[in-house]
């Protein structure tokens, strides 16, 4: 099934809760609000026409230009995206769901933006969400075990944020 047909099914089911659609991209995607993510994902998995039984990947993308001189020309407002790549073994099609987030919750630096977890739908999301939390800094509400997965447990900051400041020292070992 092509991307346009999947998007048509989703728009028919959810209506205005689908915020953006892009059927002509290489990977066709829809953008949904964080509050609607679990409903949309559950529908994508359970609907007999779609049957997305596999979650390939969860990615976090930081849209941010740390250089203030280049920021006006960057072409985007600073925000985060969480991208869910789905595929179906049964139907042999793929799809992408995106969630747009502010870089910080309530624009308070240090407060991580929140997304509901999809571990109840695809158990594979468990480690993917831990990785996204670790490196990009997205808080997955309801995750059973949201710890850092790659970096040390007492690490500060989220390194794949564009404005991340490299540590000069870690437990007495100089970093430069």
């Amino acid at each position: 099934m092509g991307g346009a047909e999947i998007i048509a099914i989703l728009v028919e089911k959810f209506g205005p809760r689908i915020q953006q659609t892009k059927p002509d991209a290489i990977d066709p995607y829809v953008v949904v609000d964080a509050g609607d993510l679990v409903d949309v994902c559950r529908f994508l998995r359970d609907d007999p026409r779609l049957q997305f039984d596999m979650l390939n990947c969860i990615t976090g993308v930081d849209y941010c230009e740390p250089d203030p001189a280049k920021a006006p020309k960057a072409g985007f407002e600073p925000h985060l995206e969480v991208v869910y790549h789905l595929s179906s073994f049964v139907k042999r099609h793929r799809f992408v769901v995106k969630v747009l987030l502010p870089r910080w919750k309530d624009n308070v630096p240090g407060q991580l933006p929140e997304v509901p977890t999809v571990t109840s739908i695809w158990p594979a999301a468990n480690w993917h969400e831990r990785e996204t939390y670790d490196l990009v800094g997205v808080y997955f509400v309801g995750h059973p075990d949201l710890r850092r997965i790659l970096l040390a447990e007492d690490w500060e900051g989220h390194p794949l944020r564009k404005d991340y400041v490299f540590p000069l020292e870690y437990h007495g070992i100089r970093g430069r």
């Binding site: 690490w155 390194p159 490299f166 540590p167 070992i173 970093g175 430069r176």
Partner: peptide
């Protein structure tokens, strides 16, 4: 490399 030790002789 934000998480790489710059030479094991630091350890």
């Amino acid at each position: 490399g934000y998480n790489v030790v710059k030479g094991v002789d630091l350890i």
